[in-house]
Amino acid sequence: MENLFELFIAASLINNFVFTRYLGLCIFFGVTKKMETAVGMSVTFTAVMVISAALSWIVYKTIMIPLSLQFLEIVVFIGIVAGFVQAADTIMRKMSPGLYYKLGIYLALITTNCIILAVPLINAGERYTFIQSLVFGLGSGIGFSLALVIMASIREKLELANVPKSFQGLPISFIATGLIALAFLGFSGLITL
């Protein structure tokens, strides 16, 4: 149990995907212009993250290992994620158009997010158990959501700032991210995993 808690903290804070593993940056910079989109993305992302971690684990363990097809992991995992996202898209559109209207656009974006693929790959590489994979997926999702929400609130503040012209937009966001990453170094060494 303690181990799982440490795994969660490590995945969400200490090895935060954005600030220490540099993943998911396209989405990170893409959706943080507005708080509303950042929150929508956070919710959708975390849900997809956990479910696709679970699906990938099952496929990896029950099909790929017995048939020694590990070398196909990239093709299979991206297939699972893309397939799941497509299915979720269709189901949501039919079952709950309201939710689809709100979150559908983020679903479409998710397939080009490296984190969504990195998590199954890391789960496979580290040989996590089913529960560990779920916790790792959840931690990564929450950590990414945290990064999105912080960044969105900071960019809202930056909207009003008199940033030098060449640095407006993406460059200053990169520098702000660098500064957040510097602050997040305070978490390093918190748990030795």
């Binding site: 030098p164 060449s166 640095f167 993406l170 460059p171 200053i172 991210t177 660098g178 170094l185």
Partner: peptide
């Protein structure tokens, strides 16, 4: 070579390109 430096480098180079 740490994350911070990476973000700084990209941000500053991007700013430079814009400039």
């Amino acid at each position: 070579v740490l994350p911070t430096g990476g973000f700084f480098a990209v941000g500053i180079l991007m700013g430079l390109f814009n400039w």
